[in-house]
Amino acid sequence: MLYAILCYASEDVVCSWSKEQDDEVMANLLNVQEKYATAGRLGPVARLLPTTAATTLRKVKGESVVIDGPFAETKEQFLGFYTLECADLDEAVEFARELSEVNPSGGSYEIRPVSVFNPSTAAA
């Protein structure tokens, strides 16, 4: 089954990392992904720009309205995701644990099975 690992953490904290700190974290995270990628199990991975760059389209009384940002008054924001082919939940949890071990942001990883998957052809 394909799992999505959704990353939540405080954007304030992550944005305050220096470039060196950020590079270090990214390198460590890449390290974790490597063996999964080699095994052909890792699907698309994305890191998102800050929520301040986000726009939301919402249907209000049958009409689509475009508004700024996700407007979530939450302490943690959705910052990115991984997709990984796993035999069972334990494997997905293990992957998330490995990621969290090298990620100092103190956030959380939501593990969600994927229902529909349409691999895109666009390269970031």
């Binding site: 405080s10 304030d12 904290v13 305050s16 990392w17 700190q21 100092p104 103190g106």
Partner: peptide, 10 residues
């Protein structure tokens, strides 16, 4: 580093 980061962010 984590603590000083959290403090400066807050």
């Amino acid at each position: 580093a984590w603590i000083s980061n959290a403090i400066s962010t807050a």
